[in-house]
């Protein structure tokens, strides 16, 4: 499994992503600088990691979305390549219009750094193929802007098209306001594009991929991607 992890000025989870990909599924993960015009050959997955690209200036992810490497990422996604955006990476994906919506400041207006639980709404995606239906995963969030927003009509369409892959929930798997940390519409923690090959989520799987970190649930995502690619899955 060959992976490109994009590094923007201000990314700070890129090494963690490389580490968890190497240790969980033995991936060959390469960090790619944002000024590159091409992705390495034979890449099967692109990860946009968390961090504070461009210091979160203007709008989170806005400037990263308009860098040279994102043209290659867009072409890669248009050809069916798998793209995963985590936290700031999710913000970059919405700002690039590779995913719908906008990510606004948390309802609490505070930076949230804590563990949370999310429910797997779909296990027919390359990112969740090895998860059980409605499985609850524990992963940390760490963001100031994580409130998923879409105008009402578009939100309904997203629900109708079954594009919500993860929702914040209680440890028992119930969606409740008390367990929606940032006020996201529809308790959204992660969504996928129409084709199913581009996924963005706010929680950090790379910070929960081995037991010593308090949870190994993030590894479900890496293992799912690995097995999907091994089986020659195509979107």
């Amino acid at each position: 499994m060959r992976v490109a992890v994009i590094v923007f000025p201000g990314s700070n989870c890129d090494r963690d992503v490389v580490h968890s990909l190497e240790t969980t599924v033995g991936a060959e993960a390469e960090r790619v600088w944002y000024e590159s015009h091409d992705l390495p050959r034979e890449v099967e997955l692109v990860v946009l990691p968390g961090g504070f690209s461009y210091g979160d200036y203007l709008r989170c992810g806005a400037m990263a979305a308009r860098t040279p490497v994102m043209d290659s990422v867009r072409r890669f996604a248009e050809n069916g390549g798998l793209v995963l955006g985590i936290c700031n990476g999710f913000q970059v994906l919405t700002e690039s219009h590779l995913l719908p919506g906008a990510i606004l400041a948390n309802r609490s207006l505070t930076f949230l750094c804590k563990n949370c639980t999310i429910r797997v709404e779909r296990n027919d995606t390359p990112f969740t193929a090895l998860c059980a239906p409605n499985q609850v995963l524990q992963m940390p969030i760490a963001h100031h802007e994580g409130l998923f927003f879409l105008p009402e009509a578009q939100m309904q369409r997203l629900e109708r098209e079954n594009r919500i892959v993860f929702r914040y929930c209680s440890p028992e798997g119930e969606t409740q306001d008390a367990y929606n940390p940032n006020g996201s519409m529809g308790h959204v923690a992660g969504i996928v594009n129409e084709r199913g090959n581009v996924l963005g989520l706010m929680p950090h799987p790379e910070r929960a991929s081995e037991r010593i970190l308090g949870s190994a649930d993030g590894a479900f995502i890496w293992n799912s991607l690995h097995s999907w690619l091994e089986e020659g899955g195509h979107r």
């Binding site: 606004l104 400041a105 309802r107 207006l109 409130l147």
Partner: peptide, 10 residues
């Protein structure tokens, strides 16, 4: 209009 303005609220 209709976009939650958390900063404005605070």
């Amino acid at each position: 209009e209709g976009v939650l303005d958390t900063q404005g609220k605070a």
